[in-house]
Design a binder for these strands. Structure first.
Length: 272
DNA sequence: CGCCAGGTGCGAA
DNA sequence: TTCGCACCTGGC
């Protein structure tokens, strides 16, 4: 059981597009972590957590949900840099950037190229069900995202059968050329080097590299510009040139650019 | 049936 | 350096 610090918004954090695999039933959240299934129930100011693997569970959950980060401080700093953020900060109170499993995050976002959330979720589910690690929890078998060794056995056609389309060859090439050591060494790179490294793989451009670094490596300074953000920047700041948008975010949001993106997205989503 | 959403690579200018 | 187009799937 975890006592929730100020206003943590589990629903928004889970459903805002950071992760693609989760199930919500009756206020119960079933999540697929790297090595375990976790079920979270919300009761007032508490999260009640059960899992297929209880090892170090509280620390794992706090890390996964980004609960160790001080958002009061971040939001106050953001307001100092740009007063006009007041609105979207308020409408996103309780939102957290998660720490998602690295390999799954990379493959999921490679699958996101010119793709819809629904299709991405479908592909990642298919990959996991076909090639993932079985995990028994509460009398059911779930399938965790596949291990790298298992993915290395797949052909381009195997990815196509998971509905990954033209992205299949890129994901195949990436998997063939990557190791867990490579995936972890990104942690030691500065953010610009990490972006260059990720973009050296075909199928990963600036937006996807930024998403991977934001959610998988907690680099809050990146600014993944998708169609939503473009619309928001056009409507609110009359910016439609990519370079202008990048300049503006760098100048105004600095090391918290990635968080502001999520606030913009939340804002758009909640208004709809 | 046609149309649309959604990032990246690639070849042309 | 920038621009226009192809790419794959599912939903409307």
């Amino acid at each position: 059981m975890i006592k929730i610090n100020n206003n943590f918004d589990l629903y928004n954090t889970i459903t805002c597009g950071q992760i693609f695999r989760y199930e919500i039933n009756n206020n119960k959240y079933l999540l697929y972590l790297e090595d375990r299934i976790v079920l979270i129930e919300e009761y007032n100011d508490y999260l009640v957590i059960t899992s297929s693997n209880e090892d170090n569970l509280l620390n794992v959950i706090n890390y996964y949900l980004g609960l160790n980060t001080d958002y009061n401080k971040i939001n106050n700093n953001l307001l100092l840099m740009d007063k006009s953020l007041d609105n979207i900060i308020k409408s996103s109170i309780g939102f957290r950037i998660m720490n998602t499993p690295k390999l799954e995050t990379i493959v999921s976002y490679m699958a996101s190229a010119n793709n819809t959330v629904k299709n991405i979720a479908n592909s990642i589910n298919l990959l996991s069900i076909k090639y993932g690690t079985p995990c028994y929890f509460q009398d059911k078998t779930y399938y965790l995202f596949p291990k790298l060794d298992k993915l290395k056995e797949l052909s381009i056609n195997d990815y196509k059968e998971c509905k990954l389309g033209f992205r299949s060859k890129y994901i195949y090439e990436f998997i063939q050329n990557i190791s867990y050591e490579d995936i972890n060494k990104i942690d030691n790179m500065n953010t610009n080097d990490a972006i260059d490294y990720l973009m050296s793989f075909k199928g990963i451009g600036l937006k996807i590299a930024s998403c991977i670094l934001l959610f998988g490596y907690n680099r809050f300074s990146v600014f993944p510009i998708d169609t939503w953000v473009k619309k928001y920047m056009k409507e609110n700041y009359n910016l439609d040139d990519m370079n202008k948008i990048k300049e503006y975010s760098k100048e105004h949001y600095k090391e918290y650019s990635g968080i502001v993106i999520q606030y913009m997205f939340n804002n758009k989503r909640n208004i709809k």
